[in-house]
Nucleic acid binder design. Structure first.
Length: 420
DNA sequence: TCTGGGGTCCTAGGACCC
DNA sequence: TCTGGGGTCCTAGGACCC
């Protein structure tokens, strides 16, 4: 039987900020989403103040001021780099690692005899190497490892490491009964509501539910969750990330945008970002979609324009993709609306080597793929945005709001911390 | 003064075709 | 007179995650 471990950074973004601001030890910290919109991370002290996650910032601004909470805009250059370092440290503790998100990964710890001390060594290594606190949860399925991680976080008596087999079956069930069904990985708000109506309230109730009944009422995904809660691993550890089937780049503007040139520049920017991700997974896209929308929270005329256009050949070429995207944008733009968000989506994604023969249209120029590779390398080596399309524009007043961003301590030379 | 994230996959339903 | 299947593709919206 396999054993999975889930390791994640506690309040990861807030912890990253604190690494470079030791003066904030023990102080409440929150980190905001793009555009300083919502609260996305809270230090333990901020959670204790009752600041909820994912609330718009302006709704908790008073509370933050009152308790002198330190507020940061999100600094993805910093978190991304800290994440790479953390994953690197964690990779030493298992033969197989699946990076699941920026702050968490699964490890295959099957066959390790002393899981307790292994878990504590993991925590210590990340703490010593990066100064980030972590928790480790272990179990015989990914879903149980996730839940074990939850236990490690919520119950200080376990010192940040928990494994289900340390309890006898009766004790384990008693603990499962203490978790609401909505806390189980894969069970969101809507499914939790439906389960509650079926008298399934806790993780234990779901574990003991009839899988066939669950499959009938929901789908195979929820059925799998039931099996996973029973210790039957249905979800394998994905050592290499599977190629994405769709790639989205989208963002809200810092202010409402009316004019076509600004929209056009932002679409060019999203095409460049999405195409870069596409090339990173060695793929080409056959379809590109463009979406522009008004602000649904405002009492103004509402409009969501969306269309997608097929490409003659599947492509990963930013310039070709951008031509298609700009045509799509012109087709959906209506001058009477003020726009709040724009984005592109790449679909019909397949390996870049896939090439259909077409008598009537010329094949793409091989020089262009070398150009794209050169652009990617420059942006990788010298920071993203080092080289970009002229079409992305030089006026950037619509770009996102980041009024409280910390320095890029680890990725920009001028921002390196200096000791005095 | 005003402020509300971003990304991925799944599914239901409609259109169309044989 | 009335009825009638099943597959594929596409899209919008739903659901989930962090």
């Amino acid at each position: 039987m396999s054993t999975f471990a889930l390791v994640d950074g506690n309040s990861f973004y807030a912890s990253c900020e604190r690494v470079f601001r030791p003066d904030l030890a023990g102080r409440p910290i929150i980190v905001l989403s793009n555009n300083d919109g919502c609260v996305v991370a809270r230090s333990a002290e901020a959670k204790a103040l009752g600041i909820p996650a994912f609330l718009p910032f302006y709704q908790v601004q008073q509370l933050c001021r009152k308790h002198r909470v330190t507020v940061f805009s999100s600094n993805y250059a910093l978190y991304g780099d800290m994440s790479r370092r953390m994953m690197n440290v964690l990779s030493r503790f298992a033969p197989v690692q699946e990076i699941y998100s920026i702050d968490e990964c699964f490890l295959d710890v099957t066959g390790i005899t002393d899981l307790d001390s292994h878990g504590h060594r993991i925590r210590q290594a990340v703490w010593q190497g990066l100064g980030i606190p972590t928790c480790v949860g272990m179990g015989s399925s990914k879903t149980l490892a996730k839940l074990a991680n939850h236990v490690a976080k919520k119950r200080p008596e376990w010192n940040g490491v928990f494994e289900w087999d340390w309890l006898n079956p009766r004790e384990a069930d008693r603990l499962l009964a203490e978790f609401a069904v909505g806390e189980v990985w894969g069970i969101g708000r809507r499914i939790a509501e439906k389960l509650t109506l079926m008298n399934i309230h806790s993780a234990l109730d779901l574990k003991q539910a009839d899988p066939r009944h669950i499959k009938r009422k929901f789908n195979v995904v929820v059925e799998r969750t039931v099996a996973e809660l029973n210790g039957v691993a249905c979800l394998a550890l994905e050592d290499v990330a599977p190629a994405k089937q769709q790639i989205i780049s989208s963002r809200s503007f810092s202010r409402l945008v009316r004019d076509l040139p600004s929209l056009s520049a932002s679409i060019s920017h999203h095409v460049a970002r999405a195409a870069e991700k596409l090339r990173a997974q060695g793929c080409a896209a056959g379809l590109i979609g463009v979406s522009i929308r008004t602000n649904p929270f405002r009492d103004l005329g509402q409009y969501h324009g969306y269309t997608c256009v097929p490409l003659v050949h599947p492509s990963a070429d930013t310039l070709l993709l951008n031509q298609a995207a700009q045509a799509a944008l012109r087709a959906i733009w209506r001058k009477e609306f003020s726009y709040h968000k724009a984005g592109v989506i790449l679909m019909d994604i397949g390996p870049a080597t896939r090439q259909q023969q077409d008598m009537f249209s010329p094949l793409p120029d091989p020089k262009r793929s070398r150009l794209m590779a050169a652009i990617d390398k420059l942006n990788r080596d010298f920071g993203s945005g080092t080289i970009k399309l002229g079409a992305e524009g030089l006026t950037e007043d619509w770009r996102m709001k980041q009024e409280k961003k910390s320095p890029c301590y680890t990725t920009r030379v001028g921002d390196i911390v200096q000791l005095r």
